[in-house]
Design a protein around this nucleic acid. Structure first.
Lengths: 214, 214
DNA sequence: AGGAAAGTTGACACTTTGGTCAGCTTTTGT
DNA sequence: ACAAAAGCTGACCAAAGTGTCAACTTTCCT
């Protein structure tokens, strides 16, 4: 009897939890875990504080729910790095996808950055293992390409770090990026130019020089 | 009479302020502005809380003192990007200097990152203008190199962002960088490999292909 | 030596915060 | 229609936070 549940039309719960999570992402991203007040999340989601506590039993629970959700998106862009593809195409797509994600999910990206800077206190070992595994798999693909002579011998792990760094910077450090580009705020076209610059530069850096005898 | 001061041997004041600032950098970096408690800074610096308030009248004053100090170091590595140098040499030195700084001043680097992610609330207009000016000057140098055919036509502003991003990532996001490299913690040698990979990749990406007639 | 300036600090006042709860209203299945 | 389940919330703590202060000790200059 403890199991019985009300499946159909569980809309209220869903909607309110979504509101809370959404507000939480925004505020946790800007204030970090310790700096975030639940009252603020409540206000931002238009619910009384006690109502927030009706759905989540603590601040940590809200935060964990969000972080857990973020991990899932780690893999998404990496899927383009697959052995059947040519390296040039693969990296081109990867860079675009990553920039696209950060542009459209600025708050999530910042929240993740914030969590890491603050010492990755809420990243469970399981999550980190998962990320490591995914990375390992893609490192292997790159090593394959290098062995096949399709890429210059670059350290694949540092290469991935360069890509993560370059693609996240625009969203995570927008004030600095915008200042650097002499814009008030970043727009889609800036991300477009970024994609082109990063792609061209990195590709020239890792692909064998074209038309060259041995 | 308000001017009279005790110049010689003002050691106590200096020493205690240094202790407070040092502890503050560490804790602000990890917790952000809102997340930091003064009691924590007091404990970390070995002083009673009331003594901290004897030197600084508020949390914000400590924070501002630290941020102001950080701005000064923004220029340091950029000095290598100077017109008399060859681009290859300039970028090589710049990348090394920046990585070196972040490795040796991890907490400062993270504090700065944290401040930006949290919306650059305490970066004064004056500071941002200064950073912008410094950037502009170096963009001009790169444009000069491009005009002289010493570099491929890259968007200089996005290029600088790539460099900032790649060189800061290791310190700011150490947990992820370490996982990516399959290490428990980053050591000097990892920064060394990073310097090599970044330098080689970027240089190939921005320098004209060697030995090529038109 | 001795008085003034600088430094120190436990205790206190006041505010904010995370989290609880009892009782209310709404929704839902029958 | 109606009772049970789900949802809602104002009012309330205890704990933790920021900042103050009056009284004490140390350091410094002459």
């Amino acid at each position: 009897m403890a199991k019985a549940a009300r499946d159909p039309e569980e809309r209220i719960r869903e909607r309110n939890m979504r509101l809370i999570i959404k507000a939480g992402i925004e505020i946790f991203a800007r204030k970090g875990f310790d700096g975030t007040r639940i009252a603020e999340i409540a206000e931002a989601s238009g619910l009384p504080k006690a109502n927030v506590y009706y759905y989540f039993s603590s601040k940590e629970e809200i935060y964990r729910a969000i972080v857990a959700h973020l991990i899932a998106s780690w893999d998404d862009a990496l899927k383009y790095i697959s052995p059947e593809r040519e390296p040039a195409e693969a990296f081109r797509l990867y860079i675009r996808a990553k920039l696209d994600y950060t542009r459209k999910n600025t708050a999530e990206s910042r929240l993740f950055a914030s969590e890491i800077i603050q010492g990755a206190r809420f990243l469970k070992k399981k999550d980190r293992d998962h990320m490591r595994q995914v990375t390992d798999a893609h490192v292997a693909v790159v090593e394959g390409w290098i062995a096949a002579g399709k890429m210059l011998p670059v350290d694949p792990r540092h290469l991935f770090i360069m890509l993560w760094a370059s693609t996240q910077y625009y969203a995570d450090f927008e004030p600095i990026a915008a200042d650097g580009l002499k814009k008030a705020r970043l727009k889609a076209e800036d991300y477009e130019t970024a994609a082109i610059t990063i792609t061209e530069t990195i590709l020239k850096g890792i692909l064998p020089a074209p038309m060259q005898g041995s």
